[in-house]
Design a protein around this nucleic acid. Sequence first.
DNA 1: TTGTATGCGTTATCAG
DNA 2: CTGATAACGCATACAA
Lengths: 341, 341
Amino acid sequence: MNKPTVHDIAKESGVSLATVDRVLNERPGVREVTIAKVLAAVERLGYVRDTYAANLARKRQYHLAFVLPEGPSQFVDTLTAALREAYGSQVADRILLEIVYVATHDPHQIVRSLQALNTSELDGVAIMAPETPQVRDAIARLKGDGLAVVALVSDLPNSTRDYFVGVNSVAAGRTAGLLMGRFIAESGEILVVTNSIRSRDSLERRLGFGDVMASEFPHLTVLPSVESFDDRRRMEDVVGQVVLSRPNIVGVYSMGSGNRPLLSALRKSGRLGGLVVIAHELTETTRQALQDDEIAAVINQNVGHLARSAIRVLRALCDSVAIFEAQERVRIEVVLRENLP
Amino acid sequence: MNKPTVHDIAKESGVSLATVDRVLNERPGVREVTIAKVLAAVERLGYVRDTYAANLARKRQYHLAFVLPEGPSQFVDTLTAALREAYGSQVADRILLEIVYVATHDPHQIVRSLQALNTSELDGVAIMAPETPQVRDAIARLKGDGLAVVALVSDLPNSTRDYFVGVNSVAAGRTAGLLMGRFIAESGEILVVTNSIRSRDSLERRLGFGDVMASEFPHLTVLPSVESFDDRRRMEDVVGQVVLSRPNIVGVYSMGSGNRPLLSALRKSGRLGGLVVIAHELTETTRQALQDDEIAAVINQNVGHLARSAIRVLRALCDSVAIFEAQERVRIEVVLRENLP
DNA sequence: TTGTATGCGTTATCAG
DNA sequence: CTGATAACGCATACAA
């Protein structure tokens, strides 16, 4: 028995192809009784539309835009690479991709960029940016224009975005905390560094990390977070100073991006070998550091998965079909030297 | 500029649609010069076939069979569930799935089942079974009949299988070893248990585990592996005895399946709280044990990923198109209480 | 309000 | 050897 087609349900309900199509796509101009007849036939035969054939007939193209933070960031670089790779593969079938880099730390800049998007030619947008009132408004506008919107990497929970592709930062921080606590037996202090403690990601990671440390590893004291403000020099200097002045430091938790200057400072201090360092996101720097046993563990979200998920989810939203949750749930990866992909 | 179609390349090369199709699908009966002309046009226009349209026209169905070990196994159960879930989703578009359970530990049984497969109605097979000469022969036969064959979970490296969907067991063992060593500061002994040390998976995990322990954690002594031979009772008894007679045991590495009886025995011994237990594969049992802090870490391969990958890879093999390696590489997951999916 | 005819990109069945 | 032409499952412009 073959899968039923529109022809079958046309025959079954005694109407024409066009009418079947009208009710299937909820187009106007069909009597209630006719709609009921067709729907009944659909039900009876268990019809399920062939999306690919539909897309073929309609010459469907999904125009998607990805809005990513501009400026030097190894993470964004790897994400971009993953996006380009996915774009060349089957998951990007019928998809037109545009990547826009904006100064996401400037609320006005990002809003301007979001508004500059040609919504009439777009079907969906993935946005990686910190949540601000301005961003929320811009997203509301995109939604108002009928676009599908997903938050990428950082959630925008109070906006009207349709979906979030990324991981729970609190849980990621908790995972880092659990590893840190289990890796360090002696008592001592934990240095926490980030580029900006005011970013929600850092905030949430810090929260989860601190929570686990406080409740389960009282032998470790978490020091107040050190901020680099995206300044390479500052990161090196501050970290160098703190490590020098605090001989009891046994571990370092790097929540943000500047891992290169961080490691550089730690190397110079001569204490790197005795410290347990845990960082986020697999990049060239962290990968190398894992291999060299300078970093004990990296908490990672797979950029390939992020890229493919965002594309698939946006497409599903455009078609308003169900999202395959199990496939799109991106995992909090624990990467050690031995399971480096 | 739209993507070029067969029509475009027909026009460009001055032949008919049918001829274009013949050379595209390498069908016989075309002059060399004509072939060259068409191929040139393909090259020039950068033509790439629309697989979905092709499948539509050809009413293509991919008949796949999954051969899995029968008998009680929580891992196989979760894999089956993942397979069924994937089967109901978009990744299973145009796919007909058949799951066959066989007594994989019996070389003759499995060969008989493999030979019972109706190869004329099948396009591809995924096999999860230990490698034996008989299995290799059976696979050679399947290949001879033109089927795509992937090894699932356990590789069959000396067979003629087309692809392996799963993880490197040596690396998985090394990962377990690294975690074990980092989690335990004091010196002591490590108990290693498995259902059968003769299975290649166990062998390789043990190899990787021992390697890391010996070279990096000399304070820990790995005891000779204890086998349960899939006997629940035996597992409980033997583990109970060993734990009783060896007060220096500080960690347990469970390489195989019987985690329920293992945990039961450890609980009875009253020493579970003081031991670091590391196991493989996320199941109901190990998930619960992670949550209860009875197991410190689970080395896992995502069954959903395994299922979807196997299906996608088999399809790609049937179509002889390139496999998207980055997407199909299944990762060695480290699952802790805090990053439990 | 409903039906007919045609096309999407590809394959396949016929003739020529 | 090569070329029309009709499907495949669905959407849509145009008629009725």
